[in-house]
């Protein structure tokens, strides 16, 4: 043993000088020279700083331009508070409705083969290709004073446009596809074998959904809800058309930002805007965390 050990050491010692000196790894034939790498990275980052990072910083810089005191006062102003409440209320109605719809749509599209399936899938995505302004306009044409149903609604004293129902409808329209388009590909990938097994073993349809399907899709569902909520709270164009801009009554946070901005009340406008920017940052962070941590439980297109 000892001899062998010493032999090994001797051999090792003898070999050492022959071992090639560490060399930087050769540049692979399919890579760029370091200088070009650095230049491309530099240009890309500079572009992102100018177009994405600076606007974000500008929101907070402008909001705090008058100091924390002014900032907090701007947020406590009654109209700002009303706008925050309206935004939260709108999202609280629109997001759960789209959530239920998204689950239903994903269940029938991902689990069954039926005639007209691809047409239905295309129609669900439709609101994403419609300009927000047109999304709002269709409701004005339908429910507005001079709209198709306008006279009937006025007779029955129902107000939809320039009131909460119109704002909620417009918000639902623009956030319509978010949950469904996350869940459909996810549930298609997962297949329905586990659900079939549960049913065969005697579980009811509801039990199968609650105990088998829901746990499988929960992170995908959360992902869709996050994006849906961010858009619901931040939507501007569609809501601007149906809101009527009645201050303190039908102005959501983005509309309140517009009003303050047009009154040259910059600090207050950016203060309310900073809350929306914070929401965007929270959404992005949560979204990135989901993509990193639960990549296996999201649709393949979301994996990084």
């Amino acid at each position: 043993m000892a001899v062998e050990a010493s032999l090994d050491t001797a051999q090792d010692a003898g070999r050492l000088p022959a071992r090639p000196a560490p060399r930087p790894p050769a540049r692979p034939a399919t890579g760029e020279r370091p200088a070009i790498r650095l230049a491309l990275t530099g240009i890309a980052l500079a572009f992102l700083v100018v177009f994405l990072f600076l606007p974000l910083v500008a929101v907070f810089a402008q909001a705090l331009a008058g100091g924390w005191q002014t900032y907090l006062e701007a947020l406590q102003e009654p109209d700002a508070q009303a706008a925050i409440r309206l935004t939260l209320l709108t999202a609280a109605i629109a997001v759960p409705l789209n959530c239920v719809f998204g689950i239903c749509a994903a269940w029938c599209i991902a689990r069954f083969e039926f005639t007209g399936k691809s047409l239905l899938t295309t129609l669900i995505d439709l609101p994403f290709s419609v300009s927000p302004v047109i999304s709002g306009m269709v409701y004005v044409l339908l429910f507005g004073l001079h709209g198709l149903l306008g006279p009937w609604l006025r007779e029955h004293d129902i107000q939809i446009v320039f009131a909460l129902p119109g704002i909620v409808l417009a918000t639902i329209f623009v956030t319509f596809p978010f949950v469904a388009r996350e869940l459909i590909p996810l549930m298609q990938e997962q297949g329905s074998e586990e659900e079939e097994a549960a049913l065969v073993m005697g579980a009811s349809g509801w039990q199968t959904f609650l105990w088998v399907t829901l746990p499988k899709i929960r992170w995908g569902l959360l992902y869709g809800v996050l994006l849906c909520n961010a858009r619901a709270m931040g939507e501007f164009g569609a809501v601007a058309v149906v809101s009527g801009h009645i201050r303190g009554e039908t102005t959501t946070m983005p509309l309140h930002v517009e009003i303050l901005y047009n009154e040259y009340n910059m600090v207050a406008a950016f203060a309310v805007a900073s809350l929306l920017a914070l929401l965007a940052l929270v959404t992005l962070t949560a979204k990135a965390l989901l993509e990193w941590r639960y990549a296996d439980e999201l649709a393949a297109t979301r994996r990084h």
Binding site: F53, L54, G234, E258, Y261, L276
Partner: peptide, 21 residues
């Protein structure tokens, strides 16, 4: 992650921020 900012940031906020810049 920041590349998705325009998806998440409300358009009105982007509008006034870009104008200020």
């Amino acid at each position: 992650a920041l590349v998705d900012l325009p998806f998440a940031l409300p358009t009105a906020v982007a509008g006034i921020a870009l104008t200020a810049l």
